Lab assay of single mutants.
Amino acid sequence: MASQGTKRSYEQMETDGERQNATEIRASVGKMIDGIGRFYIQMCTELKLSDYEGRLIQNSLTIERMVLSAFDERRNKYLEEHPSAGKDPKKTGGPIYKRVDRKWMRELVLYDKEEIRRIWRQANNGDDATAGLTHMMIWHSNLNDTTYQRTRALVRTGMDPRMCSLMQGSTLPRRSGAAGAAVKGVGTMVMELIRMIKRGINDRNFWRGENGRKTRSAYERMCNILKGKFQTAAQRAMMDQVRESRNPGNAEIEDLIFLARSALILRGSVAHKSCLPACVYGPAVASGYDFEKEGYSLVGIDPFKLLQNSQVYSLIRPNENPAHKSQLVWMACNSAAFEDLRVLSFIRGTKVSPRGKLSTRGVQIASNENMDAMESSTLELRSRYWAIRTRSGGNTNQQRASAGQISVQPAFSVQRNLPFDKPTIMAAFTGNTEGRTSDMRAEIIRMMEGAKPEEMSFQGRGVFELSDERAANPIVPSFDMSNEGSYFFGDNAEEYDN
């Protein structure tokens, strides 16, 4: 993207840094990872977990959730003011799984939030270390993106479920800051804005008074975040219109849905970061690795190297396929839920299948599930090659597409044709070009129609051997075009429920 120079890199967003050079960025990201790792080690000690239990991804998720809940100030305040039966607002906890007599047992633990905050700050040299908290939120978000298709949420806001490739980060909490905003897809931002506008339509006082002023500035800020994701002048001009509207209503909703559809071809720039579970960072720190000293990046080879040398386990339900569970977590670790499966298959070195073909449910185990038949197995999170994460949407291309997802959002900077089903997408653009945004709409449609099938995206960008740390010898991959490109292809993934 041309304006790259004016933006802070995501590592800076990730670490609240002012302008830093590459070495400083690597050190501050490393410091953040160190903090998460030290916190995780301490929690495993508190909970008396064995090494194996500490490497269980379900335990990692519970521990991450506990610290996120302990620092969720708004919710904590709300819980104190609106006490609900049987919930102690000062405590947080969740299921911890232990191996007892050759069987997995679930144990519900409860801790004072104050105590968890103390352990977290102690692991982070006394700081609140917001960057580390956001990092864990993005890992949870990436896992949700890989596990669930947001059909219901899309339909509720009037969008087409086939636009799911635009929904990265749709389950990120509001408090995820600049680093969170960077990884949100165009569809996620559109959905947040539509929800806001709908509230304004239904509630006369939404934009009024002292609160209304705050609401208005939040609305304009979200519009600017979305505008910054678009790469064409016409899309940005249309966002200006939406932002400046005196009284946002149905016309703005129409414009936003139009823009979301246009992003299936004229893709937005959305950041991709490899955020790993805390149970990967903990053992690495415990083994003596100093992330701050060595430096770390979320968008280069580092996460690949770390996963190459990590042992992570997962509980497996009786009829689940461990290899499929591994694929789910591998995609989440690489922030690749909406990437082209052919690119992923090449990088991973084994075939990556669409969601609907995987015999696996989510990673988390519900409290009512029976533990008797639970097994555990090693997650295979290694890769054959590594590639640089991208934040450009890439230019655009036609490809055989599917009944489910009709476009992709690249996660890796790797040369390819970008699949999208042009006739299906263009069919949504018939007729409606009147109104105050008509010239911009016409211009956007013209650009979409001009998108050429034979153009290559990320020209000359390749993948790298894991021994090639400096990215000196790019390998331009070859793809098996007979395979499906979309992950949520004609899909039956479970729906995400809060």
Rank of each mutant, 00 (worst) to 15 (best):
K198C: 10
N309C: 04
S314F: 09
M331G: 02
V67E: 12
Q405C: 10
R117G: 15
C275I: 05
Q409M: 14
T130P: 06
Y313L: 03
V476E: 14
R99T: 02
K214P: 09
E210F: 08
Q364R: 13
G180P: 10
N59M: 02
E81T: 02
V190I: 14
C44Q: 09
P173I: 09
Q308M: 00
S482W: 10
S383M: 10
N473Q: 05
F429Q: 05
D72I: 10
E369H: 11
M222W: 12
P95N: 14
I225V: 04
N417D: 08
S297R: 08
L143A: 09
M1D: 10
F291D: 12
E73R: 01
V285Q: 07
R361S: 08
P303F: 13
M447N: 04
R38H: 02
K90M: 06
A286F: 09
G158A: 08
K91T: 14
V329H: 10
R261N: 12
A237Q: 00
P354W: 13
G180F: 10
H82S: 02
F230E: 10
Q459W: 03
G349N: 10
A337I: 11
A218H: 09
T390P: 13
Q58G: 02
R355N: 06
E18K: 06
P277K: 04
R75Q: 11
V299K: 13
D51P: 00
M331V: 13
T6H: 08
E455Y: 08
L381H: 14
I445N: 10
M189G: 02
E292K: 03
E24F: 05
K325S: 06
A178C: 06
N224W: 10
Q459E: 14
L226W: 11
D439N: 06
E254G: 15
R436D: 10
Q405N: 02
T424L: 03
T396M: 01
Q415L: 01
N492G: 13
R152Y: 11
E369L: 02
G431C: 00
R461V: 12
F489L: 04
L47S: 02
M43F: 09
G185L: 08
D88E: 14
K31D: 07
E454Q: 01
N395W: 14
S486P: 13
I63G: 15
G200F: 10
N59K: 01
W120D: 11
M238P: 02
L259F: 10
A182Q: 01
S170Y: 11
G180I: 10
M426F: 00
G37Q: 14
F479I: 02
Q409E: 05
Y10Q: 15
I445R: 01
S3D: 02
S457T: 03
L276E: 12
N334K: 03
E46F: 03
V476H: 12
R317M: 11
K7R: 05
L172A: 03
R208S: 12
D491V: 03
E443D: 15
V183G: 06
F489W: 10
F346P: 14
T92A: 09
M481I: 03
A366I: 07
Y148F: 05
P89I: 01
K351W: 08
I347K: 13
I138Q: 07
K31V: 01
S353V: 00
S486R: 10
A472L: 13
N250G: 03
S467Q: 01
D72K: 13
S407T: 06
A182Y: 05
S50D: 00
N21F: 07
F304S: 15
T45K: 09
F346S: 05
S407A: 15
N205I: 12
I33F: 02
S28R: 14
S335L: 04
L298D: 10
Q409T: 06
L154W: 05
S353I: 14
K357H: 08
K48Q: 00
V476Q: 04
T23F: 06
I265P: 04
Q398G: 01
A218Y: 09
G187R: 06
A493N: 10
F464N: 06
K90A: 04
D421R: 15
I116C: 14
G300R: 13
T396F: 01
V280W: 12
I57E: 12
A27D: 09
D497K: 02
I365S: 06
A387W: 11
E443W: 10
Y97T: 03
F206T: 01
E292A: 00
M13S: 13
K198R: 02
N250W: 03
S383R: 12
R441T: 07
T15I: 14
S467L: 14
D203Y: 05
K273H: 09
G200L: 13
V463T: 09
Q311A: 03
M66L: 02
R150A: 13
A129S: 08
R150H: 10
N319C: 01
G362E: 15
G126M: 09
Y78E: 12
G54V: 13
K227V: 15
S345E: 14
G356H: 10
E484H: 08
T437S: 01
S486N: 10
R38V: 10
D160G: 06
W120P: 02
R118M: 10
S297E: 10
R436M: 04
R389S: 13
W120E: 11
E320W: 09
H82W: 03
Y487Q: 11
S84P: 15
I96V: 05
E320C: 05
A271S: 04
Q415T: 02
S478T: 06
P161G: 03
M448P: 03
A284E: 09
G180K: 13
E484T: 03
D290I: 10
S377P: 04
I36H: 10
R106L: 15
Q405V: 07
E107D: 01
R391C: 06
T92P: 03
